[in-house]
Amino acid sequence: MDPITLLGLVAGGCTTIAFVPQLLKIWRSKSAKDISLGMFLIFCLGVFLWLLYGLLTQDIPVIVANFITLILSGTILALKFRYKS
């Protein structure tokens, strides 16, 4: 693996796992009241578009990072709706 691809994978990994603490906090507290619905809707759309870009350009770090980020941020968005009160 070339160093640039490795750099991209590490960078993507860091920004992707940054969502794990927020997801765990929402899951444990059963509350997503402080999560901005608008921000996460726009963010999920942006991540989806980056994933499409990665697929079209066959950029593995972009594909992997955005696929996992979309799952994590999409789960946070789903929990925002589930715990709406």
Rank of each mutant, 00 (worst) to 15 (best):
P21L: 08
S36H: 03
P61V: 14
I63M: 12
L6S: 05
A65R: 03
V64L: 15
V10D: 04
S73M: 02
D59H: 12
I63H: 13
A78I: 13
L77D: 04
G38P: 07
L52K: 06
M1L: 13
L49F: 13
G13E: 09
M1E: 05
L9C: 06
P21G: 14
C44Y: 00
F67N: 02
L72P: 08
V10C: 08
A78L: 15
D34H: 08
S29I: 01
G46R: 00
K80E: 01
I60F: 10
T16V: 07
L24A: 06
L70T: 00
S36I: 04
K25T: 07
A11R: 01
A11G: 10
L51T: 12
L24G: 05
A32D: 04
F48N: 03
N66S: 10
F19P: 05
T15P: 01
V64M: 15
V20I: 14
I17L: 15
T57Y: 04
K80F: 00
L41K: 13
A11Q: 03
W50N: 09
T15F: 09
W50G: 04
V62F: 06
L56T: 10
W27P: 01
N66L: 11
P61H: 09
T15Y: 06
S31L: 13
L56N: 15
I76Y: 00
W50I: 02
K25G: 00
L7S: 09
K30N: 02
S85F: 08
